[in-house]
Simulated scan of single mutants.
Amino acid sequence: MHDEAEQVDAAVAAELRLMDSAVRASREQAMSLLDPEFVEVGASGRRWTYDEMLAALPELDGAAGDGPRYEPSHMTGAVPAPGLVHLTYETSLGGRRARRSSLWRRSGDTGEWRLYYHQATPVPPGQP
């Protein structure tokens, strides 16, 4: 996959998989999507490492099959460098909105896309 549109499509598909409650509840599936050097700055301001996220993900919002699910919108992507895709989008979950930014990088070993960095910023109520 060398075409920029194909790279963005692959990262979008992986991002959407991470929002799936079955993936969030499965350490094995989540491991396949997170880069070993993964870092997140969550909407709460908390900094998460790879190990912390894998341990907490089954208990975080969006993991319960019968609970609220992330509703993404306005997802766009760009390829700032070979093997790197930057996604931006917005989510809604249980009435809370966040603007999100993700950096996906292709693994040199497997060629799979893995989430390297993610940041969520809460959108205050009443903001467009």
Rank of each mutant, 00 (worst) to 15 (best):
R24I: 04
A81T: 11
G42Y: 05
R27V: 13
G77P: 00
A22P: 05
S73W: 04
D20L: 12
H74S: 15
R114I: 01
V41M: 06
R99Y: 07
G95A: 02
S21P: 07
R17V: 05
L115G: 00
W113H: 00
V41L: 01
H86M: 14
T91C: 06
S107T: 12
S92W: 00
V39Q: 05
G42A: 13
G67Y: 11
S107L: 10
R24D: 02
R17F: 01
D66K: 11
G65H: 08
G67K: 10
T88K: 04
S107E: 14
F38N: 02
H2I: 11
Y116S: 02
Y50E: 05
M19S: 07
P124F: 05
R106Y: 05
W104Y: 01
Y50W: 14
M1Q: 10
L54I: 12
L34D: 01
L84V: 14
R46G: 02
A10D: 09
Q119E: 03
A43G: 12
D109A: 15
R99Q: 06
D61H: 11
V79L: 13
A78F: 09
E59Q: 15
H74C: 12
S44Q: 10
E52P: 02
S26H: 02
P82H: 08
G45Y: 09
S107G: 13
L87F: 07
A43R: 07
A55H: 07
E90W: 01
P124D: 06
A63L: 09
A56S: 15
D51P: 09
G65A: 13
E28K: 05
D51S: 14
T121E: 09
T91W: 06
D35P: 05
A14E: 03
W104C: 02
V8R: 08
L87Y: 05
R100Q: 09
M75A: 04
D20Q: 14
S44A: 04
L54V: 09
P124C: 03
V23E: 06
A30I: 07
G108A: 11
D109P: 03
V23S: 02
P128G: 09
L103Y: 12
L115A: 03
S21M: 02
S107N: 12
E71I: 13
V79M: 10
M31A: 15
R99P: 01
Y89D: 04
H74I: 02
T110R: 03
H86R: 15
A64L: 13
R114V: 00
R69C: 00
P72I: 03
H2G: 14
P80W: 09
L93V: 03
Y117Q: 04
P72H: 04
G62M: 06
A78R: 15
